[in-house]
Design a binder for these strands. Structure first.
Lengths: 207, 207
DNA sequence: AAACATACATACATGCATGTTTGTTTAATT
DNA sequence: AATTAAACAAACATGCATGTATGTATGTTT
């Protein structure tokens, strides 16, 4: 069957992305061929090369699909600027944790990023996206940390950038290890305690 | 030239491992062919298949080579049981950080583990080794955390396992992000502050 | 209704990576 | 000294992944 309607084509495209996301997350990116993706989506490779230029382009589309919700979340949290900066940072971190835990698309994508793809060339869209998103988020959060410092919520002795990088590394590490073996520990419980521990350590001693 | 002496063969084997370590760390495991490894070592694929069964066996040997020093370190630190458990944990974490930063072999291997290989199949020796080593180390450190709790160095409200997993995730995350872009932040400074922050958060409030 | 463009399927060409086998030279063995 | 066996090199066979080119049936446009 060929030349279906325009929305049918979009459906095919979506099924290709679903299949790719699942296979990549299960077997790794370079260990999954375009043919396998096509078969899993019930089409042939012709369909893939019609919708995407090549594997990299496919991955790019994959990331584009879930980046949008993440951006929404960021904007949303940025607006709810109520409460102290530390609580905001906490909420943001826990939100990320929760989303990876509960949203299958996010989980698959993060799994791909952390465990199922090789960072081979600087020109790779994956690499750039990952780094870019991280740096933008960190830069934004450093402002929050500075604000918290002026409010006396964070000890003066700490460097804001290092503090934020530490917090993000903690989140990354938790996700990294949890995705490695989901049965080894409970993510939300462990993450909540770990993040609270870290944030408690940021407070001035006398507070 | 062929059939060189027995130690010449060991040299060849070592050069193969060196080449593999470098190429894998630079270009990724699945993106590096056996032929490229052989060429980089100045031999042909025949030499590789003489010393190793296949790519997985090569990687296995790669990990075996640097696992030994790491184990030495662990035994060494386990003997110096002086000082409080928290200081010991701190020293251990900073030691790992320092070793990744300063020892090229360790750095390359950790880079491969974190960024240059796909965790595709549970049967892969890489996967098992990584998980096994981690779990063993965590189990060991949980005892330390418990000990610290009985000494009143850690707040009663914290779960020991979660506390240790948090600490290790922090270290993993720091290495993960630093290896992604070594110029973005100073590893030892950031790690020292982050680890100290986390450990400070573990203390009881009134201390 | 005719012309065109889209959404694929199919077929083809190419190249590379792997694993194996065979061959050759020289150290080690007896 | 003769035999064996190690340490590779070189050649072979195979399969798979990619990219592209072509074919075709059907929606879409005018």
């Amino acid at each position: 069957m060929v030349r279906r309607t325009k929305e049918d084509a979009l459906t095919t495209r979506g099924e290709l992305l679903d299949a790719a996301e699942r296979l990549f997350s299960e077997k790794g990116v370079s260990n999954t061929s375009m043919n396998q993706v096509a078969e899993a989506a019930g089409v042939t490779r012709g369909a893939i090369y019609h919708h995407f230029q090549n594997k990299l382009d496919l991955i790019d589309a994959l990331m584009e699909r879930v980046r949008l919700p993440v951006d929404e979340m960021r904007d949303e949290l940025a607006q709810t600027y109520q409460g102290d900066p530390i609580s905001l940072l906490r909420a943001r971190c826990l939100h990320i944790i929760g989303q990876v835990q509960d949203d299958p698309h996010t989980q698959a994508l993060v799994n791909i990023l952390l465990h199922k793809c090789e960072y081979v060339d600087d020109a790779l869209p994956i690499h750039l996206r990952h780094l870019g998103g991280r740096n933008a988020c960190i830069t934004e959060c450093i402002l929050l940390a500075d604000k918290a410092k002026t409010q006396g919520l964070v000890d003066e002795k700490y460097d804001s950038k290092a503090a934020v990088i530490g917090l993000f590394s903690l989140v990354d590490g938790l996700l990294y290890n949890w995705l490695l073996d989901q049965d080894y520990f409970d993510l939300s419980q462990t993450a909540t305690q770990a993040i609270d521990t870290y944030l408690a350590g940021l407070k001035p001693r006398g507070a």
